[in-house]
Amino acid sequence: MKVLIDMNLSPRWVLLLQASGFEGCHWSEKGQATARDTEIMTYAVANDFVILTHDLDFSAILAVTHGSKPSVVQIRGDDLRPEAIADSVVRAFRQMQSELEAGALLTIDPKRTRLRVLPLLLQEKTDI
């Protein structure tokens, strides 16, 4: 699985994800820091990436457009350092890899992880 790390997360995520067996790159390697979220999403779809972000705008765009790709993984919480939450993120990636490859919105916060299959329609959320 290929993961595109958004500008609002540290580039240190790249090495951490690679060490866990995932292909990762930071948006700063692919495009401009000032790129709109829609540009990042277009790139992710065209190149088969899952987006890792702290930004809620990606899920809002998926909801409005009823998009089925790209998958988005949102990290919620105060401490976004890879060292603090990497275990939870990697565990969720492994558990939900097939769903993320097919199209999903995954939200990871300190208390729970929630998965929604894309496109976002009136459906129930799944807590894992």
Rank of each mutant, 00 (worst) to 15 (best):
D87R: 12
T113D: 11
Q74F: 11
S88L: 09
E99F: 15
H26S: 08
P70V: 13
L105I: 02
W13F: 09
E29N: 04
A44R: 01
T113A: 12
D127L: 12
R114K: 08
L106M: 12
K30Q: 14
Q18L: 05
G67Y: 03
L100A: 10
Q74M: 14
W27M: 01
T38Y: 09
E23A: 08
Q95V: 07
A86Q: 13
M7S: 10
M96N: 13
L52R: 12
L56A: 11
W27F: 00
I128C: 13
Q95F: 10
T126C: 10
D109S: 11
G21N: 00
H66T: 08
R94W: 00
K69Y: 11
L115Y: 06
S10R: 07
Q32H: 11
F49S: 05
S68R: 13
E124D: 05
R116L: 13
R114V: 13
W27L: 02
F58S: 04
L106K: 06
L122Q: 08
G103E: 02
L56H: 11
K30Y: 02
E83H: 10
S88D: 14
S10V: 10
D57E: 09
Y43E: 03
L80I: 14
F22R: 01
S10C: 04
N47W: 00
V117D: 04
I5P: 00
L80F: 14
L56I: 06
T107Y: 04
M41I: 04
M96T: 12
A46S: 13
Q18A: 04
F49I: 04
L62M: 11
W13C: 09
A104P: 04
E99Q: 15
Q74W: 07
T113G: 10
Q32C: 14
A60F: 12
L56P: 06
T113Q: 13
F93T: 03
A86V: 09
L118D: 03
Y43V: 02
N8I: 06
F93R: 02
V50I: 15
L80G: 07
M7G: 12
P11H: 14
D57L: 11
A35P: 06
P110T: 06
Q123S: 06
S98V: 14
K30M: 13
D48E: 11
V45H: 03
S10E: 03
R81L: 14
R116T: 11
G77I: 12
K30W: 03
L62Y: 05
T42I: 07
M1E: 00
T107K: 09
N47V: 05
A46H: 08
F22D: 02
M1V: 04
D6G: 06
E83M: 07
N47P: 01
M1F: 00
P70G: 10
V73Q: 03
S59L: 12
C25W: 01
R36N: 14
V3L: 06
S71Q: 01
A44W: 00
D37R: 05
S10I: 08
R114C: 06
D87Q: 14
T53K: 08
W13G: 13
T65E: 13
I51T: 01
D109R: 06
V45K: 12
P11W: 09
E124W: 02
D37P: 07
V3G: 02
S71L: 05
K111C: 05
V72E: 05
I5S: 00
G67C: 07
